[in-house]
Design a protein around this nucleic acid. Structure first.
Lengths: 155, 155
DNA sequence: GCATCTGCTGGGCACTATGCCTAGCGGTCG
DNA sequence: CGACCGCTAGGCATAGTGCCCAGCAGATGC
């Protein structure tokens, strides 16, 4: 479950240069190819590495506006609201959180004006009592995992 | 900049089975290998596909608790706060948002108790006036992009 | 109508990586 | 001490990659 230093270096290497193969990785890390292969298999079946899906930039698809919406849900309507939000493509992520029966979701839109349409679609549903939205202006720290991997590999 | 239907199918295919190569992808999509290669190159230099980094699960690294913190920042301290938060490995993501000079960040921790330590470290900084934290209980919609890609590829 | 350009096809080539195997070697643990 | 485990180092057939080419269809410009 915990990862060691070699695992950490392997993950870092894959994060920096994702398209390298097992053989090249083994050369960079100074270990045998079979070792890298075994580590990779283990990390994947462990669930530490979930996959290598392409990272798509919504801005490049024409959705440059990101926002976070906090939703207040009517008691007992959680499941319906979840199902509804799943059908909205602009909802990239949805969490249920502690607090007043709240949910937090990440939205994207084509423009600030378009965001209104997305929000209307999101909150135009019976179980949602109130929504408050924060538009993202800057993203000083994009989603990252390497610092955490480094910390986790020092045990 | 916009993507067409073939681009959309290619991205979907890569998302479902990330480890397939260009040749296998061309077979699945029923087009020539060179076409897939050209599309992939274009998508990457466009910035639509940012990369193929490994998706690491913080829970599997021993950080099963996720939280979102809303930070209220003292006027003019934004840059310092950003620099401070960048040094905290448990800060996975940071956005500046509209509102009262606010920031929103995603945190992880080893446990609910450990979250206290992380929050103390995050807010133990001069420029931060107030913080309110929401702990994530469930994640009904994990970060996804496919529905948006499908919508974007229908023009 | 005609020339040009772009994107896709289908193929060929040398090189490289992969998946899968074996044998050996140094640790650790009961 | 013997068994086991992880790493090394190598061999081998197969498959994929990067890179080339010629041909062809549709759009664009003159």
């Amino acid at each position: 479950m915990a990862i060691d230093h070699l695992d950490g270096r392997l993950i870092e290497l894959l994060a920096r240069e994702p398209r390298i193969g097992v053989l090249e990785a083994s050369r960079r890390l100074g270990v045998a190819r079979g070792t890298v292969q075994a580590r990779l298999d283990r990390l994947q079946s462990n669930g530490v590495i979930r996959g290598f899906g392409p990272e798509v930039d919504p801005a490049a698809l024409g959705y440059p506006v990101t926002a976070f919406a906090t939703l207040e849900i009517k008691q007992g309507q959680g499941a319906d609201v979840r199902a509804h939000l799943t059908t909205v493509p602009e909802v990239l992520e949805l969490h249920t959180t502690t607090g007043h029966g709240d949910m937090l979701c990440r939205l994207v839109a084509r423009s600030n004006a378009d965001l209104q349409r997305v929000i209307d679609r999101v909150v135009g549903f019976d179980g949602i009592v109130r929504a408050s939205t924060a538009i993202v202006m800057e993203n000083p720290v994009p989603l990252r995992i390497i610092p955490l991997v480094q910390q986790a590999s020092e045990d």
